[in-house]
Simulated assay, not measured.
Amino acid sequence: MKKVDILGVEFDFTTQQEILNILQDKIERNKKAFVVTANPEIVMYANKDPQYMHTLQFANHIIADGVGVILGSKIVRQPLPERIAGFDLMIELLSIANQKGLRVFFLGASEQTLEKMIPKIKRDYPKLVIAGYHHGFFKGHEHKVKQMVKEAKADLVFVALGYPKQEEWIQKNIDSFEKGIFMGIGGSFDILAGTVKRAPGFWRNLNLEWLYRLIQQPTRWKRMLALPTFVKKMFQYRRKSSDNM
């Protein structure tokens, strides 16, 4: 698959439907895949942390979860086809799991969030198999959690530990499992549980989901500072690339 280099992070040149087809094929063939849903914040963090950049290089697929990444791809004149929100991709995979009776493991968030989310998953996706779940606060019990996931033999493993922990956990442990699509999905369990409200379609269609989240969670403002710095670095990156041609 064609890749687009965004400050050293290799993004898949793909649409949501195309990546869904690829992942579904891997599930059917009992293959493994490490999926990263990356926004400008993650790209900037990887540029500051060589170990995290190294972790991202192990991913099979890095998708553009953030309008800023799409903007960045346009700046370097390699426009990605579309933004693929990690939450939307997860919902589509849950629908496929429901249709095909796939096994799903949920790792991350708090116990309270899982207590609200799991009954909703059972209600909304009655035909998928919940192969297991565990909250994200398991320091000192890493081996136990890894064994739980291993014994679950899940087709889909959603890891909601927030970056960089979720990607680091996947990269560290994926070789221990026989199969499965492993995907970091940040705070998506909170949305599924109903404890955090997602931006309405109107905001998403205008590519303003980030602003809606900032209004809902004003404490995120420091994280939003990564975007202007990201755009500046993208222009610098383009100039440097042009000079080297």
Results as ranks from 00 to 15, higher is better:
residue 9 V to D: 05
residue 9 V to K: 10
residue 25 D to L: 11
residue 22 I to G: 13
residue 33 A to F: 02
residue 14 T to Q: 00
residue 12 D to Q: 14
residue 20 L to I: 12
residue 17 Q to E: 14
residue 6 I to K: 05
residue 14 T to E: 03
residue 19 I to P: 01
residue 19 I to S: 08
residue 13 F to M: 04
residue 6 I to P: 04
residue 11 F to N: 03
residue 29 R to Y: 11
residue 29 R to C: 11
residue 21 N to H: 15
residue 5 D to N: 12
residue 13 F to K: 07
residue 29 R to E: 11
residue 31 K to Q: 15
residue 24 Q to W: 14
residue 24 Q to R: 10
residue 2 K to S: 09
residue 8 G to R: 00
residue 21 N to G: 12
residue 33 A to Y: 04
residue 32 K to D: 06
residue 33 A to G: 04
residue 21 N to R: 14
residue 19 I to Q: 01
residue 31 K to H: 12
residue 2 K to I: 05
residue 20 L to Y: 06
residue 26 K to M: 10
residue 14 T to C: 02
residue 10 E to P: 06
residue 6 I to G: 05
residue 23 L to Y: 07
residue 32 K to E: 04
residue 27 I to C: 09
residue 30 N to V: 09
residue 8 G to Q: 01
residue 12 D to E: 15
residue 16 Q to G: 15
residue 8 G to C: 07
residue 20 L to C: 11
residue 15 T to C: 05
residue 28 E to F: 13
residue 33 A to T: 07
residue 23 L to C: 10
residue 5 D to E: 06
residue 19 I to R: 05
residue 23 L to M: 09
residue 9 V to L: 12
residue 14 T to D: 03
residue 3 K to P: 06
residue 13 F to Q: 05
residue 30 N to Q: 09
residue 27 I to S: 03
residue 10 E to Q: 15
residue 20 L to D: 08
residue 15 T to S: 13
residue 4 V to S: 01
residue 18 E to V: 08
residue 22 I to V: 15
residue 24 Q to F: 12
residue 16 Q to A: 15
residue 10 E to L: 14
residue 11 F to V: 06
residue 27 I to Q: 07
residue 10 E to H: 11
residue 11 F to T: 02
residue 31 K to E: 13
residue 15 T to L: 08
residue 18 E to M: 11
residue 27 I to N: 05
residue 7 L to W: 03
residue 28 E to G: 14
residue 23 L to A: 01
residue 32 K to V: 06
residue 32 K to H: 02
residue 31 K to T: 10
residue 23 L to P: 00
residue 19 I to C: 08
residue 8 G to I: 01
residue 11 F to M: 04
residue 28 E to S: 12
residue 29 R to P: 09
residue 23 L to Q: 00
residue 6 I to F: 04
residue 10 E to N: 15
residue 18 E to I: 08
residue 23 L to G: 01
residue 25 D to H: 13
residue 23 L to W: 05
residue 33 A to P: 03
residue 7 L to V: 08
residue 6 I to D: 00
residue 28 E to K: 13
residue 13 F to N: 00
residue 14 T to V: 08
residue 4 V to I: 04
residue 20 L to T: 10
residue 30 N to E: 11
residue 15 T to Q: 06
residue 25 D to C: 11
residue 2 K to H: 10
residue 4 V to A: 02
residue 21 N to I: 13
residue 30 N to W: 07
residue 2 K to M: 08
residue 10 E to C: 10
residue 10 E to W: 09
residue 2 K to V: 05
residue 15 T to E: 01
residue 4 V to P: 00
residue 14 T to I: 02
residue 32 K to W: 00
residue 32 K to R: 08
residue 17 Q to D: 15
residue 25 D to E: 09
residue 7 L to G: 08
residue 10 E to F: 08
residue 9 V to F: 07
residue 3 K to M: 07
residue 33 A to W: 02
residue 2 K to Q: 10
residue 30 N to F: 07
residue 6 I to Q: 00
residue 3 K to W: 00
residue 2 K to T: 07
residue 20 L to K: 14
residue 7 L to P: 06
residue 19 I to M: 09
residue 5 D to A: 01
residue 18 E to W: 02
residue 31 K to G: 11
residue 3 K to L: 04
residue 8 G to V: 06
residue 25 D to F: 14
residue 2 K to D: 07
residue 17 Q to C: 13
residue 24 Q to S: 12
residue 27 I to H: 04
residue 14 T to L: 00
